[in-house]
Nucleic acid binder design. Structure first.
Length: 570
RNA sequence: CGGGGCGUAGCGCAGCUUGGUUAGCGCACCUGCCUUGGGCGCAGGGGGUCGGAGGUUCGAAUCCUCUCGCCCCGACCA
């Protein structure tokens, strides 16, 4: 491709709204433009990147016998009403009516539609398993689109769905996807982790996410570099560091006038917050529950919701009317109802509210002075110990680039996706669903691979393989060599992409500096620099974008050498 | 949805506090010359009515009211 025939609108200055590195670089290097909040135009360069990623996706999906299909984006409400998600999902779903007044929605995911198809078409266990997938647009009215193409309202997704006769079958489909995903992200050159995750609203029992570490990420992942435990903070378990403390062997009331928060009391008494019990009254559907956390810990609301269902923190007047004490001075001793306590409180001696205005009480020992149901309900903090091996945990930010879910029968039962097994019994299909965001792969790749000059693409997903930079377009020899290299290289097969070498020839009549700057910005892995200075000595230069290494290649026998350097480029 | 910030030429910005020539600068763009190893130089030129609406005023980019849009933090995220 010739630069003058290809639309690459690079910028000198980045629009001020861009914050994330990938957002800035993709704008500056002429890959994307914003249409509105959360809506992006993918210009020719990024469309080429996306297509390369999609090709990898297709290849790896075909290897696990997944079949590509495509489904409508516009859905009738009815199917979503049957599974209940029409009502569960709120503003995030784009809804509209057709001319007949029928409720419709734009697809944010395709479990319903895929299951609808399976329900109609599959009768027998002989037709199972099936894995169907598509690479197609999804629409979600995100509360807050952000960071360029990392979180948008309209995006392309590779989503696949497996249908099996039983749990064992699902395990196989799930593991096939896990393997395929591993290969996909590896082939894309990403640094990533597979982490345990919360199945959330997708339902189902088991889920993993693929996370590309990056400061632009929206998720926090917890890593133990000793035993390999790794999980999303949403479900991660940990053992908070504990303070040794044997001094308080008797119970003593402490006068703490107007000191209500743990922080205030801790400062007032000069005692570390980890030696306090934080008491929180919450209101669940079954009534009041007292929640206990160590003073230095925060409540993980999702963990608690899994135990007690929907709840909210009690208002201060509710605390007063239920316990007859002001909110800042409540404690577990003598509490009559249900108590749920974080496991970090199991051992030790603590200070807590005395259930008496302006007093706290010291020397409280769990089991001795109160009992509780023990659970892990705190948010993992960096420095906590691994729940498995006690090693110190690390927390890292990451971009979610893919996920896999075991759905079970959550969709097949309501949509009546059933089959007859080999005994003639009707059974619901056991399902899984699996997603990858190709644009997020691209953005994560940019986040992980860039320098002060611009993007550095991995060979497998770069928009072009090689870029030729003729430095002086009015020099005959330069043109001659450039054109011949351009033609010859374009005819060489590239086994990495299963196409011929894709070469970008910068045939613009601009100064060398402009070409150098743009080439580095755009980030094609290999640059061929053709300048009069080197031609005089019968060589050209081949430069690796990532390492800035320069190879001097004789003007005879050049193509073979260049291809060799290409394959050896990281 | 809560909190904060910002809308002046394609991009980056100044002007606004204290209303008053024809709204300004850099980059980009167009023409010509020149130049060709890291966004080169010189000369000439085109482009905005100040996000929108209403109001105050002799007079509004500037003051007031409403409104739309974008970004960031948080909540949310199937």
């Amino acid at each position: 491709m010739r630069f003058t025939k290809f639309f690459i609108p690079t910028l000198r200055e980045v629009p001020s709204e861009a914050e994330a590195v990938s957002h800035k670089l993709l704008l500056k290097a002429g890959y994307i433009r914003q249409l509105a909040s959360g809506l992006y135009i993918l210009l020719p360069l990024s469309w080429r990147v996306l297509n390369r990623i999609n090709k990898i996706l297709i290849e790896e999906m075909e290897k696990i016998n997944a079949q590509e299909i495509t489904m409508p984006i516009l859905h009738p409400a009815e199917i979503w009403q049957i599974t209940g998600r029409w009502y569960e999902i709120k503003e995030e779903m784009f809804r509209l009516k057709d001319r007949g007044g029928r409720d419709m929605c734009l697809g944010m995911t395709h479990e319903e539609i895929m299951t609808w198809l399976a329900a109609r078409e599959i009768r027998s266990y002989r037709e199972l398993p099936q894995i169907w997938y598509q690479i197609q647009t999804k629409l979600r009215d995100e509360a807050r689109p952000k960071s360029g193409i990392l979180r948008t309202r309209e995006f392309i997704m590779k989503d696949s769905y497996s249908f099996d006769i039983d749990e064992d079958g699902l395990d196989i489909s799930y593991n096939l996807h896990a393997k395929a995903y591993q290969k996909i992200f590896t082939r894309c050159g990403l640094n990533f982790y597979k982490v345990e995750s919360d199945p959330g609203m997708m339902g189902g029992a088991c889920a993993h996410e693929y996370m590309a570490p990056s400061s632009a990420g929206e998720d926090d992942i917890v890593i133990c570099d000793k035993c390999g435990y790794i999980a999303n903070v949403e479900i991660a378990k940990s053992v908070p560091q504990s303070m040794e403390n044997d001094e308080w062997n008797t119970i003593e009331e402490l006068f703490t006038p107007d000191k209500k928060s743990i922080k205030e009391v801790s400062e007032f008494l000069g005692v570390d917050t980890s030696l306090f019990i934080k008491s929180l009254l919450v209101v669940s559907l079954e009534g009041f529950i007292l929640i206990l956390l160590r003073g230095d810990q925060e409540l993980h609301e999702k963990k608690l919701a899994k135990i007690i269902g929907q709840f909210r923190i009690a208002q201060s007047d509710e605390v007063l009317s239920h316990l007859n004490i002001e909110a800042g001075f409540i404690g577990p001793v003598g509490y009559k109802g249900t108590i749920i306590a974080d496991a970090s409180l199991k051992d030790g001696t603590f200070i807590t509210g005395a259930n008496k205005l302006n007093y706290h009480v010291r020397g409280i020992k769990p089991h001795l002075h109160f009992e509780a149901d023990w659970h892990d309900i705190h948010i993992v903090k960096s420095g906590d110990s691994c729940a498995i091996c006690k090693n110190k945990l690390i927390i890292e930010k990451a971009i979610e680039i893919g996920n896999i879910f075991k759905l079970g029968t959550k969709y097949s039962v309501p949509l009546n996706a059933v089959f007859l097994d080999n005994k003639g019994l009707e059974k619901p299909m056991i399902m899984g669903s699996y997603g990858i965001g190709p644009a997020r792969i691209a953005a994560a790749a940019v986040e992980q691979n860039n320098d002060e000059n611009g993007i550095i693409w991995h060979k497998s997903i770069a928009p072009f393989d090689i870029q030729i930079l003729p430095l002086n377009m009015s020099d005959k020899k330069t043109i001659e060599i450039s054109e011949s290299l351009y033609t010859n290289l374009s005819e060489i097969y590239n086994s990495l992409t299963d196409r011929n070498m894709e070469v970008l020839l910068d045939d613009r009549n601009v100064r060398p500096g402009v070409k150098f700057k743009d080439a580095d910005l755009i980030g094609i892995p290999l640059q061929i620099i053709i300048g009069e200075r080197s031609l005089k000595n019968n060589y050209i230069e081949v430069k690796r974008r990532r390492t800035k290494e320069i190879f001097k290649i004789s003007t005879t026998r050049t193509e073979a050498e260049i291809v060799k350097i290409y394959y050896e480029t990281q």
